[in-house]
Design a protein around this nucleic acid. Structure first.
Length: 297
DNA sequence: TAGCCGTGGGC
DNA sequence: TGCCCAAGGCT
């Protein structure tokens, strides 16, 4: 790598790290001594769910199941119920399966290397790297939606990130990563924080940004280039997703098994109810306990 | 790989 | 109001 590029990358990282040192939010998983298991749980909860909604659930979760073995010993349905309304409840199922795998295959200790983490259910490229870096201090690029947006703007002069692409995103972040492990971890966290607080999706506050003076997008005059917009999600109201959520809400609120006709009251359209319940059974989020009786697993 | 998978809050 | 967005992962 050319010396001037290396120097620019170092200055870029220093700006982010210094800003992070002053503006980092006081979040539970940043407390000194926060356990790796807590980091893993928090990362699961943070997959597509905002920080403010995660914090109270995380606290409850870790009080109830302070170690992977504690969660592994509980029925999966308890995890789904404790997940409450965080959304995407299959994450609760995956987290429970994670706890079982950690207990069985890793002697109850959250693994510290990326390949082992990737072998766990529900742990993908982002989560594996985030745990390796934030729980264990390893040096890896961590790329989430915030990081991708900051790089797209500050480095690539684009108004927003393109579709996720590990072959592009990871090298792009790696090129900016400081050599020192601790600096690299702070840079990873700082880039995520910058994207979450300043370089936001809708209305970035560039006047508060530590990268404003070196931002390629700003220097180019904020061009509105034709970045492929993320595919618009299908309408939620009236969707099968909403129907699944309604069925699961009934089961979460019930102590025991629930008969079909009670579940069906949550979804007016009969065909849609059938699809939603079948999907939940297939995903393992619901089990049939007897003819016409259903419960959490 | 594009589509699917919840839920709630902001504008 | 309706749409967009949120520390992704799986198939």
């Amino acid at each position: 790598m050319p010396a001037e590029t290396d120097s620019a990358a170092r200055q870029f990282a220093t700006r982010v790290i210094d800003w992070f040192g002053v503006h980092a939010r006081d979040l539970p998983w940043r407390r000194p001594g926060f356990p790796p298991w807590g980091t893993l749980v928090s990362e699961f909860m943070l997959q597509q769910t905002p920080v403010v909604r995660v914090i109270p659930r995380l606290d409850e979760w870790l009080t109830r199941w302070p170690t992977p073995a504690d969660l592994a010993a509980a029925p999966a349905g308890d995890a789904v119920r404790a997940w409450q309304s965080l959304g995407y409840p299959r994450r609760a199922l995956n987290l429970h399966a994670c706890a079982v795998a950690i207990t069985d295959r890793f002697d109850g200790a959250v693994p510290n290397d990326v390949p082992a983490l990737l072998s766990l259910p529900g742990v993908g490229d982002y989560t594996a790297r985030a745990v390796a870096v934030f729980a264990f201090g390893s040096r890896h690029p961590v790329v989430d939606t915030n990081v991708r947006r900051v790089i797209a703007r500050a480095v690539e002069a684009q108004p927003d990130a393109a579709a996720p692409n590990a072959r592009h995103d990871l090298p792009a972040m790696a090129a900016l990563l400081p050599a020192d492990d601790d600096d690299a971890a702070r840079f990873n966290a700082g880039m995520m924080e910058l994207g979450a607080l300043v370089c936001t999706a809708r209305s970035p506050t560039c006047e508060r940004c530590p990268l404003a003076e070196v931002c390629a997008w700003r220097q180019a005059g904020y061009p509105a280039t034709d970045v492929a917009r993320r595919p618009t999600q299908k309408r939620y109201e009236g969707s099968d997703r909403q129907a699944r959520g309604a069925i699961l809400a009934v089961l979460r609120a019930s102590d025991g098994a629930v008969p079909t006709h009670v579940l069906a009251e949550a979804v007016p359209d009969a065909a849609q109810f059938g699809r939603a319940l079948a999907g939940l059974l297939k995903d393992g989020l619901v089990t049939a306990t007897a003819d016409d009786l259903f419960a959490l697993p």
